[in-house]
Computed example of a mutant assay.
Amino acid sequence: MTPTVTAADTAAPTSSTVAPRRLWTRTRGLVLALALLIAAGIAIAALHSDSRHGSLDPRSADQNGSRAVAQLLKAQGVDTRVVTTLDDATAAAGPGTTLLVTEPDLLTPGQQRQLHAATADSGGRTVLIAPTAPSLDVLAPGVHAEGSASVAARAPGCAQPAATRAGRADTGGVRYAAPDGNSDGCYPADGLPTLLRTPAGHGGDTVLLGAPDILLNHRLDEQGNASLSLQLLGTRPHLVWYLPSLGDASATDGGQRSFFDLIPSGWLWATLQLALAAVLAAIWRARRLGPLVIEQLPVAIRASETTEGRARLYRKANARDRAADTLRSAARARLAPLLGVAPSAAHSPDVLVPAVSARLPATGRDPHFPLFGPTPADDTALVRLADELDALEREVRTS
């Protein structure tokens, strides 16, 4: 007799087929965390991009750009040229040129040496915006950065003509320690200048500006910022505005940096914080488990507890196929010795089903479905299968 298989039976899910709703329940936390991480990254990138767009660029009219000071210089007859490569910047150096370097710390050691060699005896002026230890040793030998101060309106505090004519200006940022008495320091903060001019060969000089605020569009009309900017950048007929770029080919020569040199310093603290958080999380999770309990072995566990625990695992994993296979396999193994079937043939339907049918009353009942049928469609069908196997085994024992 051929067993009847319903549509519900053939469509029964197995442990390898996870329902979409259950899959979403398991992964929604991870998906939500990933979405929040991506959204935060996009937001931070957008804010960073907006704040850095056109910063100190004489072509930019943004509040952090410097188009206003470039226009004032143009009105005074100063020609402003923007360059983004070191070769263009060094080629333009000369007695009639002011070279403004917006981010000297971005230059590699090789680029710094090349820039210093081109400007040291050029007779022109070099203006460095907020240089610190990575670039000071090469571009301004002997000058040291001594911490920073907030940007505020400060008095000149020196006899340098450009500063005395400009008066109070929004200065601050990096503070510098002058190497000798030949350097002119102005706009002091906590006793150290934030504007320092050091002489160079052939009548040239190098100016260190601790903060770029006097050059920004939105602050140019405050205090004496415009006057100080024009006097610092307008002493020569030509102004070369150097915006260092990471794409400059000269960044790969001679002064190569290691992988750790390229990693921002903030990542070290971030890594330490993540490590500390991981340790604290491990301690927290370990304490939730409670103290260790010592038991005398061997420990006897009731068979009913093992059965119930395994059944709960099957149900949690939605593994009706494996639960049904376990029930049928155990039933076949118990029926085989009762029917005189060899253990090796206990799981063969061609051998076991006829042997079982011969021991059952002539009721037309087919033992193939409970012993070798498809996976139950739901938990109710699984319970019914267990009952059928139990009834089948009792009938064989009592026949």
Rank of each mutant, 00 (worst) to 15 (best):
S357E: 07
V143P: 13
T398M: 11
T10H: 14
D180K: 15
R320N: 01
P131G: 04
A149T: 00
Q223R: 12
L232M: 15
T102R: 01
I263C: 09
D253M: 14
L86D: 01
A19S: 15
S66T: 08
Q273H: 11
I42Y: 06
R219S: 02
D253R: 15
T108S: 10
S357R: 11
P354K: 11
A11D: 07
L338W: 09
T206K: 04
T206H: 08
Q296G: 15
R312V: 09
T108C: 10
D62C: 01
A281G: 13
A251D: 08
T398K: 11
G191N: 05
D390V: 10
G290C: 10
A169E: 02
R332W: 01
D180G: 15
N64M: 03
D325S: 13
R384T: 03
T108D: 07
L392C: 10
G185P: 09
H347S: 06
G124M: 01
G364Q: 07
R236L: 09
L115N: 03
A324C: 14
P20T: 02
E388I: 12
R175P: 01
L73Q: 00
S122H: 08
R67S: 14
L128R: 07
V83I: 09
V353M: 05
D213W: 01
G185N: 06
R287F: 08
Y187P: 07
L239C: 03
R315V: 01
N217C: 00
A117T: 14
A358G: 09
S344W: 05
T84V: 10
P3F: 08
R67A: 13
T10N: 14
A286T: 01
D137K: 01
L389D: 03
T164S: 07
D190S: 14
D221R: 05
D378G: 02
V78C: 04
M1T: 12
D325L: 12
L136R: 01
P104E: 04
T2L: 02
A355Q: 08
D248W: 12
R334D: 12
R165S: 04
Q71R: 07
L335V: 04
T206D: 05
D221S: 03
D62N: 06
T132L: 03
Q71S: 09
G94A: 00
D205A: 05
H202V: 14
A226N: 06
F372W: 08
P104K: 05
L335F: 10
S227M: 09
W284G: 06
T194L: 05
P212S: 06
L37M: 12
R257T: 12
L233E: 03
D79Y: 11
D261Q: 13
P212H: 07
E393H: 09
Q256H: 12
T90D: 05
G210D: 00
D88W: 06
W284I: 06
D213G: 00
L128E: 04
A342E: 10
A391I: 03
R332S: 00
S227R: 10
H48W: 15
V101P: 00
G181A: 14
H368T: 13
E388N: 13
D105I: 08
H238P: 02
L352D: 02
S183D: 07
L335K: 03
T132K: 05
P370L: 06
P367W: 08
T194P: 02
T132W: 02
T198C: 04
